[in-house]
């Protein structure tokens, strides 16, 4: 865990050493040093740093040019577009705008409309750092795998300030039977750069979240790149074979369920 590096030793805490073996069992903040009933200064500042990093992850802008250059190395055309959200603060308050394409995006997509098996969409969601770092490594494995199996892949679409459902609009406009959207997840304190992949068969305006499959926590310390790419490919094959996605596919891989889907999807 990266923030363990900053966790300082806890002086004058006789129980501190006793917690060392227990801390190996979980990344949870257990056995923290106390001052009275309250947190000791070191634990207080560790937490504040982790929160600061998570906040920075939410508010850091995507370096679109850099990511585009990386993605172009995959050999597919890369298009860029924006959602209807004007800026990050509007994006956070208006999920509906993040699900819609800016009007300027429509003409870009129309130029490339055709018949595709799958559309690949990348958007920063709630963590630009997540897709900046993890999107290209996952696609570097996924794209050749799909190409070998004869999938007709649409141009890669890099969308600024999108939510999960914007993938439906992109796929519909391009004429794709399915969509994979890679999106930065809600940053947690221990993982500010987690990426999610949402997959949908026959995406369109009628699509609900129950019709999506999700692979979450994609990062080297969570779901690794190769694992994520192979699970995405597996789900795409299943979706195409059974002509559906979402809850009905859940049984084939119980680890694909989003862990934060209870009250509201992290970035849906």
């Amino acid at each position: 865990m990266s923030n363990d590096v900053t966790r300082r030793p806890t002086p004058n805490q006789e129980a501190a050493d006793a917690w060392a073996p227990l801390r190996r069992l979980t990344a949870a903040r257990i056995g923290l040093a106390r001052a009275g009933a309250s947190l000791a200064t070191s634990a207080l500042l560790d937490f504040r740093l982790a929160h600061a990093r998570a906040r920075d992850a939410v508010h850091t802008a995507l370096d679109e040019a850099a990511l585009r250059a990386q993605l172009e190395a995959l050999g597919l055309p890369v298009l860029t577009a924006a959602s209807a959200a004007a800026d990050r603060s509007q994006y956070l308050l208006r999920p509906d705008l993040g699900r819609s394409l800016a009007s300027s995006a429509i003409s870009t997509l129309d130029l490339h409309a055709g018949r595709y098996d799958v559309a690949l969409v990348v958007t920063e969601g709630l963590s630009a750092g997540a897709v900046q770092t993890h999107a290209c490594p996952v696609l570097t494995t996924l794209v050749p795998t799909l190409a070998r199996e004869g999938w007709c892949i649409a141009p890669i679409m890099l969308v600024r300030l999108g939510r999960v459902a914007i993938g439906d609009r992109v796929a519909r406009a391009l004429g794709a039977d399915s969509v994979v959207i890679l999106i930065g997840e809600r940053p947690g304190l221990t993982a500010p750069d987690s990426m999610g992949a949402y997959l949908t068969w026959n995406p369109g305006p009628q699509t609900t979240d129950a019709e999506r499959n999700c692979i979450s926590n994609i990062r080297p310390d969570g779901t690794g790149y190769a694992d994520a790419a192979s699970r995405i490919a597996h789900l795409l094959r299943e979706m195409r074979a059974r002509r559906l996605s979402g809850v009905a596919l859940k049984d084939s891989s119980d680890t694909t369920q989003s862990i934060t889907s209870d009250l509201s999807g992290p970035s849906s």
């Binding site: 979980t26 990344a27 903040r29 947190l39 937490f47 982790a50 997840e185 993982a191 862990i259 992290p266």
Partner: peptide, 9 residues
């Protein structure tokens, strides 16, 4: 633990 839910984020 430490106010940080490592599962629900």
């Amino acid at each position: 633990p430490g106010a940080d839910d490592i599962m629900l984020g």
